[in-house]
């Protein structure tokens, strides 16, 4: 039962060439968390219902609990661990932190990656476009509002605009 022989694949994880051997039934989620020690990717159902395990596969958000690790051979995977560079937070991480878009933080990695993919495709999304892009990710803490605001603020900064959070967002009315 545990004697299933391992398979080895090569892929790029957060920009680094990686070779990894694992039992062939394992999902990408399991390979990341258990075989690569990248526990920043979380799970909420392991059935493709909550979006918590979202990572980017060749730049596209996927539910890593529904992707076989084997299917990732030769592809690029981006997880939350790859977002901060040189000890500096990604603009989305910065705004999520500043606005309180991460409360318990459990769904946060998934939201960050889904938002990053959105901004790569659409640097100036409307509020409705942000809602659509994040509709597959559940968050039970924030009510999503601080997440929208953080995405909008990061988007503005990534476009080179000098943007600050609104007073209402930080201090109410």
């Amino acid at each position: 039962m545990t004697s299933e022989s391992k398979v080895k694949i090569a892929l790029a994880v957060n920009g680094e060439p990686t070779e990894i051997a694992f039992a062939p039934h394992k999902t990408l989620l399991e390979v990341l968390r258990e075989d690569l020690g990248l526990t920043g990717t979380k799970h909420g159902c392991e059935l493709g219902e909550c979006g918590t395990c979202t990572v980017l596969l060749d730049g596209t958000p996927v539910l890593s609990c529904l992707v076989l690790g084997l299917a990732c051979a030769g592809r690029t995977v981006r997880t939350v661990e790859g977002m901060a560079q040189g000890g500096k937070l990604h603009p989305l991480q910065d705004t999520f932190a500043d606005l309180g878009a991460a409360q318990c933080g459990y769904c946060t990695p998934a939201f960050l990656l889904a938002a990053e993919a959105l901004l790569a495709a659409n640097p100036k999304p409307t509020r409705e476009e942000i809602k659509d892009a994040l509709a597959g990710n559940l968050c039970r803490c924030t009510g999503y509002i601080k997440i929208y605001e953080a995405v909008e603020l990061a988007a503005a900064r990534m476009r080179g605009e000098k943007a600050e959070p609104t007073t209402e967002s930080l201090y109410g009315r």
Partner: peptide, 14 residues
């Protein structure tokens, strides 16, 4: 906040 947005926070299953 920084730990939460970088995935560094260790939850029990981590």
């Amino acid at each position: 906040a920084a730990a939460k947005v970088t995935g560094a926070t260790k939850f029990a299953d981590d």
